[in-house]
């Protein structure tokens, strides 16, 4: 199989599995808290239901409100296209494509935040304000983590950082790689607004971050936003899976199977965190984010220290 074909298949796997990861997470959480919980496929049903619905638009909104879901889903998809999801090479790869990953996500977020402010609702303004606060520290942490990988593998392209050079760096760089992976997991929880930063299951607007921003979106627009969030979580999870199990040398079929299994395992891990950890109070969140980012910092210092 040609590398490009396996990259397309891997992208398709991520696109299909993404809502399921959320389902696995909530099912795990339910089981651990002695509830039966919704079916694993519930998030697919939700998306299909929303796609079939009509839409209610707020009077105050402008075009931005309608453009946001479209731009969000497009930019999240493109962010996925620069990650070597098959463990070999990404569909789009160039030096510094890691910047494109983070900044494409930022573009989607910018539009979503503007859509929230477009409604003129104080709840959504509050959510937007919290979202940008969390995101700015998450970006700092992401670049520390990717800096570690760049210094370790001597490339600035994700296809190198997560491809063959990563496997070569594992024997000597495993402490730094593990620390990076843990840091990325903590950052993923924040970026994708899961416990302990945000609780997707909460029903009180005042305590929400991401959910409150999209209160006024409905129907297919809401479906696009929910799907983008799931996709974003899955592509960051794919990075973590690749870090822990470099797949450059595996046969393509095995590599793709590992990807799917890894994504579902991430869902289980998120569920375990959500069942065992309480949500942090809002003022504590910067501290959490700083701790997560400092894991990236330590691993970067470690790599720079240990190699000439």
């Amino acid at each position: 199989m040609r590398p490009a074909a396996s990259a397309w298949i891997a992208l398709a796997i991520v696109l299909v599995v993404a809502p399921g990861v959320l389902g696995v997470a909530s099912r795990t959480r339910a089981l651990l808290t002695r509830r039966r919980g919704a079916p694993v496929l519930q998030s697919y049903y939700d998306l299909l239901k929303l796609l079939r619905r009509g839409s209610v638009l707020s009077d105050t909104t402008s075009r931005v409100f309608r453009a946001a879901p479209v731009c969000l889903v497009a930019s999240t998809l493109l962010a996925g296209a620069v990650i070597p999801l098959d463990g070999r090479a990404a569909l789009i790869r160039f030096p510094g494509d890691v910047v494109a990953l983070v900044y494409a996500l930022a573009f989607g977020r910018f539009l979503l935040v503007l859509a929230a402010l477009d409604t003129g609702s104080s709840f959504e303004g509050m959510g937007a304000s919290r979202e940008v606060t969390v995101a700015s520290i998450v970006e700092l942490g992401l670049f520390l983590s990717f800096g570690t990988l760049a210094a370790l593998t001597k490339t600035s392209s994700l296809s190198g950082m997560l491809g063959a050079p990563l496997a070569a760096a594992w024997p000597t760089g495993s402490p730094a790689i593990l620390m990076t992976a843990v840091g990325l997991f903590a950052l993923m929880l924040a970026e994708c607004t899961r416990v302990p930063v945000d609780d997707p299951a909460t029903h009180l607007e005042l305590t929400m971050i991401h959910e409150v921003m999209i209160l006024d979106h409905s129907g297919p627009d809401l479906a696009l936003i929910l799907y983008s969030s799931a996709l974003e979580l899955s592509i960051i999870a794919a990075i973590i899976v690749t870090l822990l199990a470099p797949r450059g040398d595996m046969p393509v079929a095995v590599s793709l199977a590992v990807l799917a299994a890894g994504l579902l395992a991430t869902g289980v891990a998120i569920g375990i965190v959500e069942a065992t950890v309480a949500r942090l109070r809002l003022p504590k969140i910067p501290l959490y984010l700083a701790s997560a980012a400092s894991l990236g910092l330590f691993s970067l210092v470690l790599v720079l220290w240990s190699s000439p």
Partner: peptide, 16 residues
């Protein structure tokens, strides 16, 4: 390389 995370934070704040 330590300037890269600083630039990332700057990007996040500029977005805000």
């Amino acid at each position: 390389i330590f300037a890269a995370p600083v630039l990332a934070l700057v990007g996040g704040l500029a977005l805000a």
